[in-house]
Write a protein that binds this DNA or RNA. Structure first.
Lengths: 147, 147
DNA sequence: ATCACTGCAAAGTCTTTGCAACGAC
DNA sequence: GTCGTTGCAAAGACTTTGCAGTGAT
């Protein structure tokens, strides 16, 4: 079993919650897909797979995953809200292609310097961040050449 | 007159639009406040100042300002949508204090390197970005010490 | 048996749109 | 006078909540 699911079971147990079919399904699907999903996406994926769950339950479960420290909410520049896996993941940022809307994860080697800069310039003690870079992915550059 | 308002007039003229009381009011208030306002904020500010405008008009005008290149939409991590002045502004990023929710603008000296890194690592040609750093501002650090 | 969970539908928020009256040109 | 604009209210997208029935322990 995925270590994330164990964490979830522990969270459920410790909080007097219950281990239900829906929660397991939603969590499994979410983890499986690697995050970057909206509630609607998850709902569609589950129902397409023949698993009947209500949209409200998806929302509720995602919120629970956030509380359990397994997921995080992300508001993307297009205004969409997506959830992302955070368990054991190194902090990372996102490249978003304006052509195909794909999302690429990227590590930011300048983070520490950036945080230090924020402190040096404004006395701001950084604890987290969110970076999205928009542009054209390598695929779409290739595609554009042949269009 | 603010150069931004001239740009707006030019945009309006060039597109067969009309120069109305509401547009001028909304744009003036928006520019005055330096951006970082939600539509609702602007609406409230205008009505508090005794200027009667409809909320829908605020939304419509903000959209127009974006088209005119004077404003940009920002989706902040708390899920709020705010508009920001962009005319003649150097590209900048944001520090957001999790205590007092103040927003500090900051320049990012690592941008070029970051863009180059995105290209080197993923062949991604960056055209823009959005960075928000969360943490505690200097004021709140001081405040926390005395609480 | 208890008490949390689910699904649905209703209610909320935020934003956009339709429409008749209005105002700029 | 024409045609874009406004304000309102209705409609939409997305998310949350109330409630009665269901299911885990």
């Amino acid at each position: 079993m995925r270590p994330e699911l164990q964490i979830l079971e522990q969270y459920v147990a410790e909080n007097g919650l219950k281990r239900t079919r829906q929660r397991t399904l939603i969590a499994a699907q979410f983890l499986e897909s690697g995050g970057h999903l909206s509630a609607e996406d998850l709902y569609a994926a589950l129902n397409a797979a023949g698993h009947r769950v209500g949209l409200a339950t998806v929302y509720r479960t995602l919120k629970m995953l956030v509380d359990a420290g397994l997921a995080q909410v992300r508001h993307f520049p297009d205004g969409a809200t997506r959830y992302e896996c955070v368990y054991g993941e190194p902090a990372h940022d996102h490249l978003i292609c304006v052509e195909c809307h794909c999302i690429i994860e990227i590590e930011n080697p300048f983070l520490d310097q950036l945080y230090q800069h924020a402190f040096a310039a404004h006395g701001f003690v950084a604890s987290g961040h969110r970076l999205v870079i928009t542009g054209i992915c390598s695929n779409c550059q290739a595609g554009a050449a042949s269009n």
